[in-house]
Amino acid sequence: MEVRKSPPQLLIEKLHLGELDPHTSVNTQACQNELETLSSSNEQIWAEYPPDMVALQIAQRLRKRRLSIPGASLLERLNSLRSPKWQWAAIVLLVCAPVGLLVLNRPNETDRIKGLSPFLTIYRKVGNSFERMSSNSKVAEHDIIQISYVAHDARFGAIFSVDGNGKLTLHYPERPGPAAKLITSGEVILPDAFELDSSPQFERFVFVTSPDSFETQSLIEHFQQGSLPKQYMSSSVLLKK
């Protein structure tokens, strides 16, 4: 009979968590290397997938899942998140559900100054956090990018990017159709970060806003023709590769 070199992974994981059944016999001395490997693996995973960010993403998925279950009441959905912190997060998420956005900043009067132009901000993930990218910053394939916007008083908008191959990608709203109704208080972070692909030379991110609703398709056509009608305002960030 073949002799195993070490216990099954599940038993080592349980031993590491202190949840091994007392009746299970495992030679802890023989597992010492594996236990140390798990500890350093944990550190790497927390750095790569930060707990606060992952928890937020899980809460968002949970919200979408619960909203898709017929008969699930708002109270029932909120009650599933017992921590007050996540209840508050869920309330914010549910309020934002129609546009699928998460508002990180609470409404702030200083964010409501009239006459300021809407703008977008690009962040790049660096280790455990995101760094703000100024225009003309260098990026590379596989960089993780997060987009946010500040709408000020603009009511409708769309965010798209154009890469060095001329390919245009719509980021917000997620699908072509009516422009997104913008949230006018504070910085709004789009729900999903994404990874840059191998397209060459540059990525230009464009935020177009308007006081009136518009179709993303007509916006894209105007953009490709090189002329935006007067009612649109635009701001962009160019990232070089």
Binding site: Q9, E13, H16, L17, L38, S41, N42, I45, W46, Y49, P51, D52, V54, A55, I58, A59, S80, L81, R82, S83, K85, W86
Partner: peptide, 18 residues
């Protein structure tokens, strides 16, 4: 349920399994 605390404790094990 504190999602962050559960992820911190069990997330690495789950990710390794996946």
């Amino acid at each position: 349920m504190d999602i962050e605390a559960h992820y911190r404790r069990y997330g690495p094990m789950v990710l390794r399994r996946c």
